[in-house]
Write a protein that binds this DNA or RNA. Structure first.
Length: 375
RNA sequence: GCUGGAAUCGUCUAGUGGCAAUGACAGGAGACUGUAAAUCUCCCGGCUUCGGCCUUCGUAGGUUCGAGUCCUACUUCCAGCA
């Protein structure tokens, strides 16, 4: 079992430490989205220096390129990418269901590669095998995303996710056994179940109950797209999930409010492509809200993006320079912006953790969100 | 000096009788949540009560119901020949 210890509690919120074979994650923590085994525009050294504790890669993308066997041959995701800290992999479920012409069969899902149209099939079993080959510390169960917001579609997606979960668990245990019987004292890789149910609290409750009964190491909470109503949903789900296992809020964290509400209602880790994607597009976080550094008004602004920000971008460069790099389409623009945005969410989540530990969370939340959203 | 050719919205460019005028770039703004995203969308002559109105394709005339498109002259530029 994955070792997880809770160090502080405040209602559903908690701080803790996830002990993985590649080191500890102090939670709540923001996990960098490294879809294709890299956080776009950033080196692992930069990710390390900006304070990231863990990254999350995507099984779908790595199956297509370079292939999971190659990563296994390299010695696993950590060796391959030179990220010698904790790693997660997403199962690929989310990506596949965003593709056109997806066919769901008894076995799994048939789809065409977005790169060359080649036919692929992923099953709960093959997703587990792929994730074991990639060798991240924490794996996500292969889940099913609903094709619409309707109750029927949500229920169907949830039921299939549950059905697949038991197959994921069985395959995960088979793979774990083959590893331990090969001489390893302990199973080195861990599985999270994924809770579905959309915006329907009865489905969320049902899903959480089902997932809670499974022999998994933690939980992913999937299918969340906005912070609206997320507090109630998380209250429902995290009151049901066992307290002694970590919970990952899948795909949320583009908006700071996501991190505050997620942590407040019992989530331990987050991942989101938003911060780095927005960085590449010139949308940068400040404590007073996001700004678009490409706007003409920054042409002569020689002040740093954030006066008291400790990131490498803010410590060394000013807005006029960043504006210039973006207007001239220099690669460095995306690098510096990504350093800043990734630092912003990692650091904000760190501050949330510290405020929970010293009992100032509510004050910190109120102050931060009022300023950020100009309330 | 002669003979050809060319002048279009910041730039390059399409356009050969129905046109406020094509496309690209530049410029302005917006979006982005388990990354088919270094992507995508919108605006880009002026005014507008959003129906239009006005002024535009080197300059000045002309032909025509109608001209960026045809004709004449001029101006500037390019090429070739002197």
């Amino acid at each position: 079992m994955l070792k997880y210890e809770i160090t502080h509690r405040d209602g559903l919120a908690r701080t803790g430490i996830i002990h993985t074979p590649h080191g500890d994650i102090h939670t709540p923590a923001f996990v960098g989205a490294a879809t294709r085994a890299t956080v776009k525009a950033l080196t692992m050294k930069e990710m390390n220096e900006l304070g990231s504790q863990a990254i999350l890669a995507n099984t779908y993308h790595l199956i297509l390129r370079p292939g999971t066997e190659l990563i296994k041959e390299a010695g696993g995701l950590a060796e391959f990418s030179s990220w010698h800290k904790p790693t997660f992999t997403d199962s690929g479920g989310f990506q596949i269901f965003s593709l056109p012409n997806v066919k769901i069969t008894e076995k799994g899902v048939k789809f065409k590669s977005h790169i060359d149209g080649a036919n692929f099939e992923i099953t709960p079993e093959s997703s587990m095998q792929a994730q074991w080959a990639i060798g991240a510390d924490i794996h996500m169960a292969f889940d099913h995303l609903a094709k619409s917001e309707s109750y029927e579609d949500m229920k169907e997606a949830m039921d299939r996710t549950h059905c697949w979960l038991s197959r994921c668990v069985a395959e995960h245990q088979r793979l774990a056994k083959s590893v331990t019987s090969a001489g390893l004292a302990e199973n080195p890789q861990f599985l999270y179940a994924v809770v579905q149910g959309g915006t329907f609290n009865d489905l969320r409750a049902e899903s959480a109950k089902y997932c809670a009964t499974q022999p998994v190491d933690g939980f992913g909470i999937g299918g969340v797209f906005t912070a609206d109503g997320m507090d109630e949903m998380l209250k429902t789900v995290n009151s049901i999930l066992p307290e002694d296992k970590p919970r990952h809020l899948l795909g949320m964290g583009q908006e700071p409010v996501d991190l505050f509400i997620g942590a407040e209602f019992g989530c331990d880790t987050f991942d989101c492509v938003g911060p780095t994607r927005m960085a590449r597009n010139g949308s940068l976080y400040t404590k007073d809200g996001r700004i678009n550094i490409k706007n003409a008004k920054y042409t002569h602004d020689f002040t740093p993006l954030e006066k008291d920000c400790a990131c490498e971008c803010c410590k060394n460069y000013n807005k006029a320079y960043l504006h210039h790099l973006f207007k001239t389409d220099e690669i460095t623009a995306k690098v510096l912006a990504s350093i800043h945005n990734e630092y912003f969410v990692v650091h904000t989540t760190d501050q949330i953790r510290k405020s929970l530990q010293n009992g100032t969370f509510q004050d910190y939340k109120k102050e931060f969100l009022n300023r950020y959203y100009h309330k």
